[in-house]
């Protein structure tokens, strides 16, 4: 059975190659920092399971120290805008084939590879279908670029390095925030928030209960960066005791709309780095909170709609 292991090895090799390419890039004045950063990332993917908990902790601290000192942006040998226009004419719509292959291969993994059994055992780990599919899709797209568009594999890795350098610290942040969530859980942050939520229970009216639950979901999602973490806390603290037990509301509609109220919070928070900060880096925005700024008005209006909707359907 193919599990997540080979995918981590693939990622480790990719970051290792990027570290070597950084070391050989004289046009990046901070190339040794980039080499160290991507090199440490490669070590994490290749040998993370052998380092032990404390060893991994030290590895993270080293990566953070390098990133805080400031990474540079590598400048691979790439094509000029004019060359790209010519290439775009030459290749025509064939250029879209590799990018279409990415979702198609992911779907193929999810619906076909998942069903394949060899000697009674699944070919790929059913719990990891999405990630294995993503890895297969990425490899397929690089191969298609080689075959259809004559882009050498080394060039692809070097272009990947250009994008990774553009991300810089933002590349590590989503994983760091997930790890922070785990430390918060060990330290009892969720329990503390639950206590506050249940102490802040509003008085008698149904409307107040709905507002407290939906607003609480949005607020705690914004704080934790993740609606999945806020949902159990708020639903135990306010949703079930008040809306369901006291006012006999429908728990199913309440939960569905409650989760979506949490997503309104996700739109507003840097804690949801992969959605909000990573694209700002990837698109080269000057304001790291530029994407959040666009999303806030939509989030506020939609949260109000959710409150009205919840009030109407939960007590129907």
């Amino acid at each position: 059975m193919i599990g997540i292991g080979p995918v981590y090895v693939l990622a480790g090799l990719m970051f290792g190659a990027m570290a070597l390419m950084s070391a050989r890039d004289p046009r990046n004045p901070r190339r040794w920092r980039n080499t160290a950063f991507w090199g440490l990332y490669a070590i994490s993917f290749l040998f993370g399971d052998l380092l032990g908990d404390f060893g991994n902790g030290i590895l993270v601290l080293a990566m953070v120290a390098v990133a805080a000192a400031g990474l540079g942006i590598g400048r691979p040998q790439t094509t000029t805008p004019d060359e790209r226009k010519l290439l775009a004419r030459k290749f025509g719509n064939a250029i879209f084939a590799p990018s279409l292959a990415i979702p198609l291969v992911t779907i193929f993994a999810a619906f076909v590879l998942r069903q394949i059994f060899i000697a009674g055992r699944p070919l790929i780990d059913p719990a990891q279908t999405t990630l294995i599919g993503l890895a297969l899709a990425s490899v397929t797209a690089v191969i298609l670029c080689r075959v259809l568009l004559k882009q050498r594999i080394v060039a692809a890795l070097d272009e990947g390095r250009r994008l990774m350098d553009l991300l810089g610290w933002a590349a590590l942040l989503p994983q760091m925030l997930s790890a922070l969530g785990a430390v918060f859980a060990v330290a009892g942050v969720g329990t503390a928030i639950g206590q506050i939520a249940s102490q802040a229970i509003p008085g008698g009216s149904r409307a107040a209960a709905v507002v407290a639950y939906a607003f609480g979901m949005a607020l705690f999602t914004a704080v934790m960066g993740n609606a999945f973490a806020a949902f159990p806390v708020l639903t135990i603290g306010i949703g079930l005791p008040l809306i369901v037990m006291k006012f006999h509301g429908d728990p199913i509609a309440m939960s569905a709309i409650g989760m979506l109220s949490g997503f309104c919070g996700t739109l507003t928070t840097p804690m949801a780095a992969n959605f909000n900060l990573v694209p700002a880096a990837l698109l080269g925005l000057k304001n790291r909170y530029g994407v959040i700024a666009v999303q806030i008005p939509t989030a506020i209006l939609l949260l109000m709609v959710n409150m009205v909707l919840m009030y109407v359907v939960v007590f129907r």
Partner: peptide
Amino acid sequence: FGKAFNENRYVSLTWLVLPAIGALERAG
């Protein structure tokens, strides 16, 4: 933190797609 960081490596696997995206940008 190190333990959680190691367990959450899958979060960063999205970056596997960047070489293909970069190569496509290079090709126009």
